[in-house]
Each structure stands twice: as structure tokens, then as C-alpha cells.
Design a protein around this nucleic acid. Sequence first.
DNA 1: AAGGAAAATGACATGATGTCAATAATACAT
DNA 2: ATGTATTATTGACATCATGTCATTTTCCTT
Lengths: 204, 204
Amino acid sequence: MTDEKVIDKRHLRSIKTREKLLEAAKEVFLEDGFHKATISQMIKKANIGYGTAYVHFEGKEDILIVLMENVMEKFYEIAEVSFFPKTKKEAMEIILEQATAFLKMAETERNMMQVFEQAIGISTAISNKWKAIREKFIQRISEDIAYAQESRLARPELNHKLAARGWFFTNEMYLWEIVRNEHLDTVEEVAKTITAIYTRGLYL
Amino acid sequence: MTDEKVIDKRHLRSIKTREKLLEAAKEVFLEDGFHKATISQMIKKANIGYGTAYVHFEGKEDILIVLMENVMEKFYEIAEVSFFPKTKKEAMEIILEQATAFLKMAETERNMMQVFEQAIGISTAISNKWKAIREKFIQRISEDIAYAQESRLARPELNHKLAARGWFFTNEMYLWEIVRNEHLDTVEEVAKTITAIYTRGLYL
DNA sequence: AAGGAAAATGACATGATGTCAATAATACAT
DNA sequence: ATGTATTATTGACATCATGTCATTTTCCTT
């Protein structure tokens, strides 16, 4: 809590340097993408010495992971939505809302997500961060389906884990399409269509 | 046809060099993945001079694209399956078969697909190759849905293009999971589950 | 004010890329 | 056959990014 006030001047300098670097790194990443971005560009923009970057971070990957933390936090929040529908209609509404919120992230955080997408393909560490988010969602959806099956709302013969993955995958791929700006339809239209098929396919 | 017989000796040498390089490149890619693989390793393995690689190809990307051509061809073949179902049941069968064939590719071509997946994240050229395959499938599925809607087999109120994308996305993501060996369920089980939800959701 | 510790620095070693002028191998004309 | 033109191959080189580390700078403590 009050720890932050006991910071001495040189620790403060360290923190400021770190911040300068992170800010510069963000600009460079957004401008050039993960692959083309270099440490040299970042330290130049931040007005610090080359080696300094390696004092604070292990490399590009490490920097991006820190920069992505906000965004990842938001994804985790969306995954936490509670799900206790009483009827099929209610289930559909909750699912539609969650899918919409998820896809909206692509629009809100488009720029950083573009960098992130590229980084996922290159860096194992970053790929694992995204995998964790994915598994969190799938785990959650899986539980939701199991709940719906117990409540006799959803078809009991379907493997709920496989169904959950399949549903998340549709959402995820649309997310990346929107991130890449490759999609002309509105988020609402997309969410409506995929939710309609999924819920009619899964629910009784 | 008979063109190949009219090759003179030095053209033949050129072709053999190219082949040697491709073969070596494949080994290196499979061993180290796209990102870590270097031209130096390849020319060493192929016993040719460094510059020679750049005579035949523009770089790593270019080489991988050539190596992937077989595999890509197979995807295009799967996308071409004809679709004129008379009943819902018949539609389900065709769709199940196609999904299974698609996912089986992940197992059959796992090694090269692993390299390919990494390359998609790094190289624009390769990413575009995959996008072309994806759009081919989506285009085809889209037409199939439209046909089913006209035949009063599928629900007419759904946007067939959005539905097609969503369906393909589930398939594609499962494909990559299988490629990465991250999936324990059988291809058949996966195909059965996702097809069941999709067809029940889409068809009347 | 001196000495010690934390933070910052940039020169360096390493390794990858793509280019290009030079060289080797082959074809062709006489 | 021999000389010349054409095509294929080569590896040294310029360039650029990375990560390390011995050194320097800045700040804290006593």
C-alpha cells in the first residue's frame, strides 16, 4: 500500500527509466509490429543507453508481455461472467452478451492486439500467455455447458469440452479478423449469427 | 509434356542444385522450425555455396512456400467436394465427412504444418497463402449454405457468409490444435461433436 | 566527504541477411 | 578443336540486430 512512498531517489530513477522505455517500446511496436521492432529503436526513442534495456527486461518479448498486461486483464474479466440461466432464452442472452463483449475487445484494443497477434506466432512466451487466456475461457464455457446439461437445457449427449472449444474457436477467429480489420460486418451482427447457430445447436 | 527431356546439362545442374537445397531446407525447417532455421544451415546441409541459395530463392519464406505446395494442393482438393444434399441427414453426412477429411490433414501433415503455422505468424507472404486457402473454404461453405437455404433445408434468416466463416473457424482452430499435438480426443470425435452442433444450429 | 551499492552505459563478440564482382561450367559457332 | 558467349555458382563483404559485461555515473549511508 504505502510502500510506494518509501522509494528512494535512485529507485525512482530506475522506475522512470523503465517507464520511459515501456512508453517508447509501445510506440515502436505500434509503428513497426513485433517482428520489425528493435531494441535499438526503443532505447533511442526513450533516450537511454543500449544496455539499459537489458537491465529492465530480458528482451522484446518480455517488454511486450508487460505492455499487454492491461489488455489481458480485461479478457480475464470477460471470462468471469456468471452463468446461471433458467431458460434457453436466458442462456442465449447471456451467451450473446459475452460473445459481443469478447469481440468488442478487438475493436477497443485493436492496435495492441495486432502487435500481440504477430508476437504469438514468433514468441513462445507470448504464445503461452494467450493460450492461458484461451484455456481460461474454454474451461469456463465448458463448465457453463455442463451446468446447462444438468439443468436439462442443453443436449446431454454432446461432449461439453469439445463443444466449448469449438464455440470459443469461432469467437477467437472472429476476434483476430476484426483485429486485422478484415471484417466489414458489425460486431453485433457477427455475434448474433454465431450465437444463434451455437445455441440452437446445443440447447434443447 | 516432353519439355523435360530437352533440358541441357547446365540447366539440369541448376535443377539438381535447387532440389538439393529444397531437401536440405525441409530437414532444417522440420528440425528447428521456421524462425530458428537459417539459410546457412541449409546451404551447409546441401553442400552448396551461400550465395547459391539466393539465386534460386528470395529467402526462407520463398523456400517454405515451395515446400508447402503439395500440402496446399491437398487442402484445395478437400475444399472442392461437391455438395447437393436432398435432406438434412444427407447434408450432415457430407459435412461430417468433409470436416473429418480436413482435420485428418493435421495428422497426416503434422510436421510441415507445424512449420507452416509458425511461418504464418512471421511472414506476410506465407500468411497470405494460408489466407487464400481459408477464403477458398469459406467461399465454398458459403455457397453450400446458400444452396441449402434455397432448398429449404437450412434456416433462411441466417447470414450465410457469417455462418460459413464461423463454421470454418472452428474447424481451422481444431486443425491447429491437432497440428500442435495438443489434442487427445480423436479426429472423429471432434468432427462428430462440432458437426452435430453446427448442423442442428443451421438446418431446419 | 568517503566509500559502497545500485543503475546506466556503450563497445564488443556473435551470428544472420542479402548483394555482387569474380570464377567455373557448359553451350555454341566457326 | 578452339574461342566466345551464356549461365550457374561462389564466398567475401557490408549491414544490422542481439545480448553481455567491464566500466562509469549517480545516489545513499555513515
